[in-house]
Amino acid sequence: MKNVTEFKVTVSQQVLDDLKHRLQNTRWPGEAAGSGWNFGTSEAYLKDLAGYWLNKYDWRKQETLLNKYPQYIADVHGVKVHFQYIKGKGKNAKPLVLTHGWPDSYYRFHKLIPLLTEGDQSFDLVIPSIPGFGFSDKTSLGSEAVADLWKTLMTENLGYEKFYAAGGDVGMGVTKALASKYPEVVAGVHFTDVGYPMGQEDPATMTEAEKQFAQFVQQWWYAEGAYAMVQATKPQSLAYGLNDSPVALAGWILSMVNAGAPPELIEQAFGGKDELLTNIMIYWVTQTIGSSVKMYKVEAMAQWGGSQPLKKSNVPAGVAVFPREAQFPKEWADRFVNIVSFKKMKEGGHFAALEVPDVFAEELRNFFYSIK
């Protein structure tokens, strides 16, 4: 490995004591009786979660689990990139970079590690933190710039001639950029979404299924898209409160998690209370919620600035559509990637790697080992 140093998660007791003080002194705004999740994150639920966070959640235990697998910091074009790197045990393990989204983190994939590094069909897993997230540098970059870093990380820092890539949400944009810009080194890509209609498409070129999908997305945007509009326009204004109050941070993240899962499944969607809070803690202890949401502004500025869309890549692509994810048709995905496998999954949602890791790991293994 080149320009790489070992890393361990170590949070000072002072940070944890300060967190406890802030949780104990939360000023609750109140909510209308029976409002539930209709106005945003339920205060009743958030109070229960905050109580668990304060009295039962054990960060030191989670910190030990986070340090279970090897982690490193790489200097990539002057940007410090945090990543997990776990070698597969098979003789011909395939190098695979997994890219998370927002409001999750590299922790999104922790349940996949034992599933994808064992057996003959295994992977050398590289699981980075996007710059601006978690333990990487607090610099906010667009998807294409992140893809440039990943290409260098995989080929120069880690020395692979070719590699595979998978991602959803923000990670979808990074993975799509990798395939489009670097087809000579990216051997295959996998997605759980491929982007959404934003009113720029010519309706005359769209199938009826695509038009129905576009209508669904427009309705969803009006109902659930406030987070993205704020983050793409006024991320700095938002960052002050989220960086200062752990309950505000949790409330904002939970609002997005709830957009992809009904209230009764919100913990299941993330694997449980401990997993939900560990993901939130990664933002809290690194103070990266501000730099993470600014990525939306960086992406929006690129679009508003008239940047040319990425060309469709010929890299073989697999697509898995989980039932609690936006149900886009195959012809929509065909616009962006070279589909060789398109599957409608039977269970799971936006955070499938956390919710149904066995199902997701099997999908990744079957796809990547089916292509040359």
Rank of each mutant, 00 (worst) to 15 (best):
M229R: 08
D75P: 03
R60L: 14
L46I: 01
Y196C: 02
G132M: 06
Q236Y: 00
Q62V: 04
K311I: 05
F133V: 14
S143K: 15
V315R: 00
R335D: 01
P309Y: 13
N258V: 07
F7A: 02
G251C: 08
A204N: 14
F216K: 15
V4P: 02
N243R: 09
A223V: 08
S245M: 06
A165E: 03
D120A: 15
R22C: 01
F7W: 08
T233F: 04
V11T: 14
F39C: 11
F7H: 07
G305Y: 05
V174A: 04
G199P: 12
T26F: 04
S122L: 13
Q84D: 00
S313L: 04
E347H: 03
E347G: 00
L265D: 14
A187C: 05
K56H: 12
G195T: 07
T5S: 13
A204M: 10
E363Y: 12
Q308F: 03
A248M: 09
L65I: 12
N258M: 10
K68N: 13
N314K: 15
F123R: 08
A226Y: 03
N366Y: 00
G225S: 07
G241S: 02
D358T: 13
A228V: 12
T5I: 14
D358Y: 12
H100P: 11
M345Q: 02
D358C: 00
V4W: 02
P235F: 08
A317V: 01
Q121W: 05
G167F: 06
P70C: 06
L66Y: 06
W221A: 07
A50G: 00
M345R: 03
Y369N: 10
N157H: 04
Y196S: 08
E224F: 11
A165D: 06
A248D: 03
I130R: 07
A300M: 15
F342R: 03
L141W: 02
Y52T: 08
L112D: 09
P246V: 08
K87A: 09
V9Q: 08
K372I: 01
P114V: 10
S341H: 14
V298D: 00
A239V: 06
Q327W: 04
A214Y: 06
I113M: 10
Y369L: 03
G168L: 13
V359L: 15
M172G: 01
M206A: 04
Y222N: 09
E201S: 02
I266D: 01
W59H: 02
V230E: 13
N55C: 04
F83M: 07
I289K: 10
A93H: 00
P70K: 09
